[in-house]
Design a protein around this nucleic acid. Structure first.
Lengths: 232, 232
DNA sequence: CGGACTGTTGAAATATATCAATATTTGTGG
DNA sequence: CCACAAATATTGATATATTTCAACAGTCCG
């Protein structure tokens, strides 16, 4: 990105808002009218099913855009909840228009970011359907390991995991009880170690072998992107 | 969309290519370098897991863009297979650049289309994890009913479904045997009727009651979109 | 026509859910 | 900083949805 791109991106968001743990940033069923940039902290995106059960579709980490899918709907599909203290800033639809109208390169990057999210969801869906709970757990842990690593939040393959086993269950679509059994089995097998909210991946190689799909690495360069000023 | 938008969109694709049933349009592991517009026919997007099992992530219908997520990766994540005879046209990365550089409105629409796909995937993921096979089947049938209806391919709530029960299993993440049991149970319960490849939804209301999530209806208007020529 | 898919049904095996009881940790107010 | 309540983790026993294996019927297509 050029300096101009970065400036444009920073100008996008409104004032920085502090979020407390447990705070609902946006609730399903309410109109969206914009999205949020996650500047700091963890946020979950969850949906409640007819039968009352909840499912977490995504754990958002700093740098993520929250709530963009709901821009396409009359009312938000998911609820955004802060899992830790954090900071967000709101991007209105008007700001988004200005971005698309003035910076084709960032527009294309936004498009590509959305495609990357699709990949993650596609992989999660493929994995969920046809793999055992342990395999899905391995995939989830490796995904977090990769994403947190990129943010510098992993040391010695261990990281802070500010979610309960029940939430992990809501991500993988299994019960909290079964999450516990699987984690303990992985622990006994020397795959991971966890104390409180700290998770340590003891054997990345074995974990990768158990993961139904590899963790995707995005293309580092997209040579076809329009130049920042290449406006017709 | 204005006339200019439509012209821009049509210019995007290369020559029309005819596809035979079973033909592989693009294979996972190979570089993408562009995507396909589906002009006619059904196409599946599938992934193969480490354990050899296949999972279908999406049934594509005419009007869909195929393979855009893989633009973000060094090599394609999914395999695109024609399920019926059909027609596609290829859009190169260069064409895509020109679009982003010259038409901010279509750029924004492309972004929004990707978000809509995310919604579908999020719902499928939420549904898959926490619902019974019958509930997921209801959701799938209603989704197809809605999408095919928009294309004028539904009459009397019945439509042509050019896929085997094994493929349905690969979509829902269950075995072909179980697909059969679930479909027959729905049939006995008066929810659906099927003969050969024709599926008829006999009781939409009951089906909706069994579906874990409603079928989403996109916003009809996005007033914030940049005008077609609103280039800074 | 015949062979290969595809659909259908039954019986047994298995992963995961559910229910229940207890231990441990975490957060909070005094 | 402590004590206590609430949330979370852990483990066992049992129930259940789905898979697996198997056998056969139907159907499509060359």
């Amino acid at each position: 990105m050029t300096r101009r791109d970065i400036t444009d991106l920073q100008k996008l968001g409104g004032p920085v808002v502090s979020r407390q743990r447990g705070e609902v940033i946006s609730r399903e069923g309410q109109p969206a009218e914009g999205f949020h940039l996650l500047l700091d902290g963890w946020v979950s995106s969850s949906v409640r099913l007819r039968n009352g059960k909840r499912l977490i579709q995504k754990l958002h980490l700093p740098g993520d855009m929250l709530g963009t899918p709901s821009l396409t709907l009359p009312s938000a599909a998911d609820t955004l909840t802060a899992l830790t203290e954090g900071k967000t800033s709101f991007v209105s639809e008007v700001s988004l228009r200005k971005l698309f109208a003035s910076n084709p390169k960032l527009s294309a990057l936004f498009f590509m970011a959305a495609q990357l999210e699709r990949i993650t969801l596609m992989d999660a869906l493929a994995s969920a359907g046809r793999s055992s709970a342990l395999e899905n757990m391995a995939h989830l842990l490796l995904d977090l390991h990769g994403r947190l690593g990129a943010l510098g939040a992993v040391s010695n393959d261990s990281f802070y995991l500010p979610i309960t086993q029940e939430m992990i269950g809501d991500i993988l679509g299994i019960t909290a009880v079964h999450v516990n059994r699987v984690l303990r089995e992985m622990s006994r097998g020397g795959l991971v170690k966890f104390e409180g909210r700290t998770m340590c991946l003891l054997n990345l190689q074995k974990l990768r072998a158990r993961s139904p799909l590899p963790i995707r690495v995005p293309r580092s360069k997209l040579p076809w992107l329009p130049g920042a000023k290449a406006v017709a």
